[in-house]
Amino acid sequence: MAITREEVLKIADLAKLRFSEEELDTFVVQFQHILDYIEQLKQVDVENVPPTSHVSLTPDFEKHMFREDEVQPSLPVEESLADAPDHGSGHFRVPKVI
């Protein structure tokens, strides 16, 4: 399937990424190569094949996957905020939204 420059720009928008015009030229070509390569999966007959999203489920997994929703100790607010580029009054600060 051929991918257009416009489609690449649309995906970049969804991914919250921006490319310069030059970057975009190289990128469209590389993207096309990769898509051409992954297209070969269309040759595989997957009718009646179930999907695998988790390879290590033990038969009694539900017993271990779910637990009571109990309050556990968590990081203090100051430590959680310590890596933030901007914060104040116990919150992350971002540019004005409204």
Binding site: V8, A12, L14, A15, L17, V44, V46, V49, P51, T52
Partner: peptide, 28 residues
């Protein structure tokens, strides 16, 4: 590059053709 490929593969209308199919091939 990988964020773009992944966003494309998961985007509306392509999910089953790419990620859905890939998870079935994974089973094989």
């Amino acid at each position: 590059r990988r964020i773009m490929i992944g966003t494309y593969a998961l985007s509306s209308g392509y999910y089953e053709a790419y990620y859905g199919r890939a998870m079935r091939v994974r089973t094989l």
